[in-house]
Computed example of a mutant assay.
Amino acid sequence: VGPPKNLVTSDVTDSSFAASWTAAPGNVKLYRVRWNSLFSEETGDKTVPGHVTNTVLDGLSPETLYQVSVVAAYDHKDSRPLTGQETTDVSAAGKKLTVSDETERTMKVTWTPAPGKVTHYRLKHTPVGGGKEVALKIPGTTTSTVMKRLQPMTTYNIIVHPIYKSVEGKARQGVGTTLSPFKAPRNLQTSEPTKNSFRVTWDPAPGQVKGYKVTFHPHGNDIDLEELLVGPYDNTVVLEELRAETKYSVAVFGMFDGGESLPLAGEEKTTLMDAPEPPPVDPSGKS
Rank of each mutant, 00 (worst) to 15 (best):
D11W: 08
N36K: 07
L188H: 06
G207M: 09
A251R: 01
V118M: 11
L82S: 05
T177N: 04
I159V: 15
P206R: 02
L242T: 02
K269I: 02
V167N: 04
N27L: 03
K29E: 13
M153R: 14
K195M: 13
N235Q: 10
K77S: 09
D58N: 14
A184N: 03
Y164S: 06
T145L: 08
E102V: 12
T178G: 11
P4R: 05
V1T: 07
K95E: 12
P25Y: 03
Q189S: 06
K5H: 11
L7E: 06
K269Q: 11
A24S: 05
I159C: 06
F17R: 02
D257V: 13
V68P: 07
H76E: 09
D274T: 00
V70C: 13
Y31K: 05
R122H: 03
R122L: 14
S61Q: 12
G259T: 02
V109Y: 05
T142V: 15
R122K: 15
N27R: 09
T43P: 03
K96I: 00
D282F: 01
A114P: 05
G266T: 01
V252K: 01
V209P: 07
A72P: 08
V68M: 08
L30G: 00
S261V: 03
R149V: 02
G259H: 11
R105A: 06
L57Q: 03
K132F: 15
E227L: 09
F253A: 00
S69V: 06
N221L: 14
G285I: 01
H76L: 01
E226K: 12
T271K: 09
D89F: 00
E267G: 13
L188Y: 01
N196F: 08
F253R: 01
S180G: 08
E245N: 15
E192W: 14
H217R: 00
A184L: 09
V48H: 13
P162G: 10
Y156A: 00
T190K: 07
T142N: 15
L82M: 07
T201H: 06
A73N: 12
G116W: 00
Y74P: 11
K95Q: 14
S10D: 13
T64K: 06
T98P: 01
S10E: 06
P152W: 15
R105G: 01
W21G: 06
P81Q: 04
F216H: 15
Q173W: 09
V99M: 10
Q85V: 01
A171E: 12
M255F: 02
R243V: 04
V70I: 15
T119R: 10
T190G: 04
Q189W: 01
V12H: 13
V68D: 05
V52F: 10
R34Q: 08
K183Y: 05
P204Q: 04
V28I: 08
T9W: 08
S79W: 04
T22S: 15
V160N: 09
M147V: 14
A73F: 07
V52Y: 12
P62H: 08
V160W: 14
